[in-house]
């Protein structure tokens, strides 16, 4: 257990293991994404109230769910790099931010497109949309803060603190529809009890959520590999790897 944890701190080992995970996870992700998209967009029944426009749920919900989960990954990596001074945790934290920002952006844009035909507006300052916008700014803030420092150790510390402070936003986004009156409806997928979305629509949605988690993992590992190469550019193993 501990030897695995220590190996994670070794850049060449992490680079190699990330590569071997990607070699099977990436094709699997693409297949699952394609299957989920075709199933959800073409083979499920239209909704009894919203007709076909509800189908954007198969992009909107997975992107939003993984954007929230990704923030925890970033904050936990930041915490590990603060406490144990693990360089590879810092790499993971830095690599999470652009992926999370992209997913949050997708969730906001698809939500806006969904809002126009159903609610009748592109944008409304309801609690969930506003807190989701704050999440986007947190992700962008981590990216910007990292670039603002010349000293990358200080940058990593500042970003880790920012991402840890930002974790308070995640339960707020999740519970916003229950705590306040908002235009969003309460959750349809319930962990306890019966979900209020028909099983024929739920299964492709769960497949898409799973695929988005896998997609996040792939994008994170690819980003991390790139960042490792950048940081280790002058070491022997990277020189050997690129054949210089």
């Amino acid at each position: 257990m501990w030897s695995f944890f220590h190996k994670l701190g070794s850049p060449p080992w992490l680079y190699r293991i990330a590569g071997s995970i990607l070699s099977w996870l990436l094709p699997l992700t693409l297949v699952a994404l394609a299957a989920g998209a075709v199933w959800g967009l073409l083979y499920t029944a239209p909704d009894f109230r919203q007709g076909n426009s509800y189908r954007i749920i198969y992009i909107h919900v997975p992107a939003a769910v993984v954007a929230l989960a990704g923030y925890y990954v970033m904050a936990i990596a930041g915490g590990i790099s603060l406490i144990w001074k693990m360089k590879m945790a810092d790499v993971a934290m830095k690599s999470c931010a652009p992926v999370g920002a992209a997913l949050t952006f997708i969730a906001l844009v698809t939500g806006s497109i969904w809002g126009k035909p159903t609610w009748g507006t592109w944008w409304v300052w309801d609690a969930r949309i506003t807190s989701m916008l704050i999440l986007l700014f947190l992700y962008l803030g981590v990216i910007a803060l990292y670039e603002a420092y010349d000293n990358k150790d200080a940058a990593g510390k500042a970003c880790a603190v920012l991402s840890l402070v930002g974790t308070v936003n995640i339960p707020i986004i999740y519970k916003s529809v229950d705590w306040w009156y908002s235009l969003h409806q309460p959750a349809s997928i319930k962990f306890t009890g019966e979900s209020s979305i028909d099983p024929s629509m739920l299964y492709p949605l769960l497949l898409m959520i799973g695929s988005f988690y896998a997609l996040f993992t792939c994008a994170l590992l690819m980003n991390m590999r790139l960042e490792i190469l950048r940081r280790e550019a002058r070491t022997g193993w990277v020189r050997k790897l690129v054949g210089a």
Partner: peptide, 18 residues
Amino acid sequence: TEVLAKHDENYMPPEVAE
């Protein structure tokens, strides 16, 4: 000056609703 529709958390095919 503006009226928005709010939908609930139920999603189902029309046949199920019927």
